[in-house]
Amino acid sequence: MASPRPPIESIMRAAPDWAEVTFIHVNEINVDALAVRASGNLSRLYRLAVAFDGREVLARERVGAKLLPDFCPERHINAGGSFCLGLNAGTGIGDVTAPVWWVKLKSFLLCQDTASETGVWPDYAQMSHGDAGEIEAKAEQIAESIGRLGDLHRAVRSDEGPIAACLDKVRTTGQLRNGRSACLCGRKDGNGRSLLRRECHKLGCPIELEFARRQETRRFWEAARGQPCCRSMKNCPLADRAALFPDKRPSLNTVDL
């Protein structure tokens, strides 16, 4: 049986026509990326280094290319400059998954254009930072399975809706009060009976998960508080920079993927 292809080779072979590989060295390639929007307009030219570190494939701006900040959680750029393309986006890369990685990179770069122009990261491409992202992904799966995905999105994105309204009923331990009452998320068992809160807790209650996501989000920003703000984004928790964009009224629909 043939050995699996090295991740970087799979990435290189799957390179789309908007990305030119300009340098190849063992587990790293250089890429010049000029992503195309649905409208036909082009993104800025991004000069990237893409490398496999033994665990995952990572992309970042090459040294000397300064379109992007070195670190900005609001723009999903990690400390050290690597891009956050999504949960586990760079792991398990092979011939089948490499094209998906390029799709995520394209979306990321187009969102960077929007962030540079408006100081806002598009809401549809947002994901919680750090460990909160894992919790959000789990909550989305569960909420979708019980028909509450829209309510979860409202809670996450605008602190509104029935899930957000129930968060004050969660103890500091992370469990809803009154465990013997019907769960406020509305989950039912196979016979159509409402689950008790203590039963729903064991399965993963979307209300409790949203509470946990917010806790982890606060921890993330507390840990990042000492990092300098790149001053490119509105309403960044690292610093209040709204005054940098006094004449702009950014729309979350400005990117045309």
Rank of each mutant, 00 (worst) to 15 (best):
D168N: 06
D168A: 03
D168Q: 03
K169L: 14
V170Q: 05
V170F: 05
V170C: 06
V170W: 05
V170N: 03
R171N: 11
R171C: 07
R171Q: 13
T172L: 11
T172S: 11
T172H: 01
T173F: 02
G174K: 09
G174W: 08
Q175P: 00
Q175S: 10
L176A: 12
N178H: 13
N178V: 00
G179Q: 08
G179V: 02
R180T: 10
A182H: 01
A182K: 08
L184Y: 02
L184I: 04
C185N: 05
C185W: 04
C185A: 04
R187Y: 02
K188A: 09
K188F: 02
K188P: 05
D189P: 15
D189E: 03
D189K: 14
D189W: 14
G190N: 04
G190P: 01
G190L: 05
G190R: 07
N191T: 00
N191H: 09
N191R: 13
N191W: 06
G192N: 08
G192Q: 09
G192A: 07
G192F: 03
R193P: 02
R193N: 09
S194L: 13
S194D: 10
L195W: 07
L195K: 07
L195G: 05
L196Y: 05
R197V: 01
R198C: 06
R198Y: 13
C200A: 12
H201A: 14
H201L: 05
K202Y: 05
K202H: 09
K202Q: 11
K202A: 11
L203T: 10
L203P: 04
G204L: 04
G204I: 13
G204H: 01
C205A: 06
C205Y: 01
C205Q: 08
C205R: 00
C205G: 06
P206T: 11
P206Q: 03
P206S: 02
P206N: 06
I207L: 03
I207Y: 05
E208S: 07
E208Q: 15
E208D: 03
E208I: 14
L209A: 05
L209W: 10
E210H: 09
E210R: 13
F211I: 01
F211V: 02
A212L: 12
A212Y: 00
R213A: 09
R214E: 00
R214F: 02
Q215Y: 13
Q215W: 14
E216G: 01
T217D: 15
T217I: 08
R218M: 08
R218V: 15
R218S: 13
F220D: 04
F220A: 08
W221D: 01
W221H: 05
W221R: 11
W221T: 15
W221L: 03
